[in-house]
Design a protein around this nucleic acid. Sequence first.
RNA 1: GCCCGCCUGGCGGAAUGGUAGACGCAGCGGACUUAAAAUCCGCAGCCCGUAGGGCGUGCCGGUUCGAGUCCGGCGGCGGGCACCA
Length: 882
Amino acid sequence: MSETTSPAEAGGLRYDFAAAEPRWQAEWDARDCFAVPDVPPADRPKYYVLEMFPYPSGQLHMGHVRNYTLGDVVARYKRAQGHAVLHPMGWDAFGLPAENAARERGSDPARWTMDNIAAMRGTLKRLGLSLNWDREIATCLPDYYGQQQTLFLDMLQAGLVERRDALVNWDPVDQTVLANEQVVDGKGWRSGAVVEKKRLSQWFLRITAFAPDLLSALDGLESWPERVRVMQAHWIGRSEGARVSFALTAPAGGVKSVEVYTTRPDTLFGMSFLAIAAEHELAAIVAATDPEAAAFIAECRSLGTSEAAIESAEKRGYDTGLRVAHPFLDGVSFPVWIANFVLMEYGTGAIFGCPCGDQRDLDFARKYDLRVPSVVSAEDGPDPALRDFPGDVAYTGAGTLIHSGFLDGLSTDAGRKAAIARLEEIGAGRGVVNWRLRDWGISRQRAWGCPIPIIHCLSCGAQPVPRDQLPVRLPDDLDFARPGNALDHHPTWKHVACPRCGAAATRETDTCDTFVDSSWYFARFTAPRAETPTVRAAADGWLPVDQYIGGIEHAILHLLYARFFTRAMRATGHLGLDEPFARLFTQGMVNHESYRDADGTWLYPDEVERGGAGAVRRDTGAPVSVGRIEKMSKSKRNTVSPEAIIDRFGADTARWFVLSDSPPDRDMEWTEAGVIGAARFGQRVFRLVSAVAETIPAGPSADVPAGTSADAFGGAADTLRRATHRAIEAVTEAMEGFAFNVAVARLHELASALSEAGQQARSVELDWARREAAERLCLLIAPMMPHLAETLGALLVPGGALVAQSSWPKPDPALLAARRVTIAVQIMGKLRGTIEALPDEAAETVIAAAEAEPNVARLIEGKRVVKRIHVPNRIVNLVIAG
RNA sequence: GCCCGCCUGGCGGAAUGGUAGACGCAGCGGACUUAAAAUCCGCAGCCCGUAGGGCGUGCCGGUUCGAGUCCGGCGGCGGGCACCA
């Protein structure tokens, strides 16, 4: 022993994670532990676990660590349970950041992306995730997006793709279309230019064709979080109502009537006006001869669609002077307004205003002093005697119809049906179902995306690229120095011959929304190198994804698009099922305290020394104010780098910590103390198990030695065995329930039990029990701390099987019950004492013992016990009279 | 405004209608050490106290022998959606 032996080493072995972790990762690789064939093996049940694949920003963050650790625990657990586990990883690799980087520092987007992927792949590998790396895909590679182009053409052929004009947010400086969330206060988020509404020809995927099914199938997704299903249902937004045609009293520009959509045909007698959207065709007709109307329409358009604009915009309108006849009232007509709160995109772009039953209509009517007939009477509604509705709060509830002609006296529900029946009878309207969901516009004026495989010919129109010319590859010499779409102004790329007539034509230069890329990657993973989008045997074998894990932020769009794609791929023969994700788990965020300097500068956690009471700067000792605990973000600098944590503590510690304490679906707080606690536990397990490996020779493992029954053990050995088997049961149950924080707690308990047993006098039985406990502990922690588990497994049974290839332990039922049980004794439901009993002891015996318990006996002395409740092994409750 | 979720010690949290607070973090006490670190052991909801008792899972009420758990109402916090007719 040298004199430089560290105190830690002198005090016992110390687990060297930095050496062990890469070694086991290499070993798993060498033995191909996590590979599975394209078609799942028939001898085992399949299990497909998938985490949402990351965007290759360049750095893995703690949210990823949490997400992928959760998935890996499931993957390793299911593998140990005997499943063939598909657990792949890939990259959502198209998107704007690569173009921005190209603009800002002249990098090539492909190069930038692939470098980022390499860096992040490195971190993922350091985490020891049990991934099928040979199935890795990146959506920016032609292997992937070429197959996506095939899907696009198949959908086009199947009538699921359409080209049509649509209004988009146009940034005149960047010369690009912006998504709604990229428009801030009516201005482009990058350029700051005022965003214009522009009509462009766009490609649409007909998601609305599946709207009824996407809605009704939500009911079958029982293993999805309720709130995700609710959000999707609302997004799809089915409503029942009527289309009603209002005849103009005098035709305008050839238009004779205006059609509206309403969910309240029962309130037709409460009509006060008709309002159309600024983009409505009738508005354009009016504007042609009325400059004031034209000015109003222009004003509406300039308001934009940003949320801020909508929120602050008050209801405004312009009276066109036109009038429409009421369908039920002869000779009665109402004015036609252009109103800024009527949306062209929903329904028919026109409404009939019934101010008493709709807050927006009421606001509008009050502003312009229009009549407000009262047509619904209810207990909490307005006075039924009034013909004009009072106040500024509309009554939107159910009730009885009044002042409504043939509908008088009907309930609002019955009135709806009666009104529709009459409308249909007189040919003025019909009952319809309307949807809030709109078709999915996928065209993006960006170069770094999947090219849409279309060629535009002046004489033949939009032509699909012939299949044998796929993939339509992106050029590798894109120039991002100019604003606008680099694909569009590439010197040669778009110039091709029309596949039909051979004349000079141009390629579609729009690329797909990146949500398209992530809508089918889960299917591609089942046969990632195939020359077709999917291989049915592989897809049919592995799908659906048994467990999908990711952030709640994708509750609507990504998950809805993936559900749509699955149906569209079924319709085109690429898949054989409707629902891609059998179970969905949405994990919480990783939060951290934020810190600010005296002058308000945000500080990184590394720069701060955290004391009990407050915090100071590490370098200067100056006080630091501790801010809110919030989501890790670069701007607040409250981030912790996974690489740095793995360097300091190892992957197992990082994994263990993100699983401890907080349930996976809730937000967790990352703390230094928490990581250190996790590291300490790893070391503790290492000490405990290596002590067993050193002092107790290998031998018994799976079964109790011949001729020995569970009852052969007594004293400390029995206590430990029962603790071991109860832990197996409890950890298994926690794993099944996604309660990894509870699994962690049960493993702490098992470690404590093993530690306690190590302090008892040795015996053959106790040695045996300790070895059993150590071996089981090693298997039980393996999904969470796989490297440590392998290290311990090798110590316990040198030359034995890899823990990654070992089976999940099963508890011995005979050892699940305690030797003695503690039974609570209550009087009138209040705890008054406890007694010890044998498990499942007869009720009379237990009750007698309960009544004999000194404190209980004292309290029931002289009282009459009228009822005795006995819950076996748990409780006795005595009900006394008086 | 509408919809959804949550509310338990100093903190994260645990608990098939059956001893509320498992397990961990922080804290306190002790052992080991010249000392510290590491490690190990113990204490710990609040209040009064010797025994023992009272109060406690946001608040009010109900069902039950028994409620954190089930039901009704109220409050607070968080999230989603939002001129969707």
